[in-house]
């Protein structure tokens, strides 16, 4: 489904990676690991189309993503380093707004049950929640994005407790079983087998 060909990325005059190619099919996990500053986040940003690679291209089902734009954006969920939640809004408001903007239909009940799945209070401004809970508020979107084939997750396990990691792991495995593709970066051992690993040096 997702294909990266001969990617090269430069940030601030430094080459982060070059000649990077891979293919990712349905039901596959790709775990990207590497030291701090090795370009994991940049790679994910290139894959989702936020960053233009200095060489090479990313293709989705054979089409270059730069040409697809919103068409491609509808097929992916990208959860970046920042949790992408508004501190002044409640987890419920954050989640339903995020889903509307992503073009994912989510009823009020669906939003509530997704939040319950991540054990989040739905009527407290996210600002008052802890770091880990804020992370959960962002990740709750995955519970509603089952129909979106490609998940690109930047450090999804960071700041989560053991129970949260387990929940997220189950969610990821479930998505892969249903034929989704997942790319994620992590330092820690996620506790489940990724189909493939990519080590950035």
């Amino acid at each position: 489904m997702l294909e990266a060909a001969d990617l090269r990325c430069e940030r601030g005059g430094r080459v982060l990676f070059e000649r990077l190619s891979f293919r990712l099919g349905a039901g596959e996990f790709l775990r990207v690991s590497g030291a701090n500053g090795s370009g994991k986040t940049s790679l994910l940003r290139v894959l989702c189309g936020l960053l233009t690679p200095s060489r090479g291209s990313v293709r989705w089902k054979g089409e270059p993503v730069a040409a697809l734009r919103e068409e491609y954006a509808r097929q992916l969920v990208y959860l970046g380093h920042a949790p992408a939640v508004k501190g002044d809004l409640t987890a419920e408001e954050n989640l339903s707004i995020a889903c509307t903007l992503a073009g994912v239909a989510a009823s009020r009940d669906a939003v509530k049950s997704a939040l319950a799945r991540f054990a989040l209070p739905d009527d407290v401004p996210v600002r008052r929640l802890s770091q880990g809970q804020r992370r959960r508020a962002a990740l709750a979107r995955l519970a509603l994005s089952g129909g979106v084939p490609l998940w690109l997750l930047d450090e999804p396990f960071a700041a989560l407790d053991a129970e949260g990691i387990e929940r997220l792991g189950a969610l990821l495995s479930g998505h892969a079983e249903k034929g989704g593709a997942i790319v994620f970066t992590t330092h820690q051992d996620p506790g489940f087998a990724a189909t493939r690993t990519l080590e950035l040096a």
Partner: peptide
């Protein structure tokens, strides 16, 4: 921009101009 929601708008289903 700071909290990352702008990135999500760029990756939204609607054209960025509309947003």
């Amino acid at each position: 921009y700071d909290d990352g929601t702008l990135e999500q708008m760029l990756l939204g289903a609607a054209p960025l101009g509309v947003v």
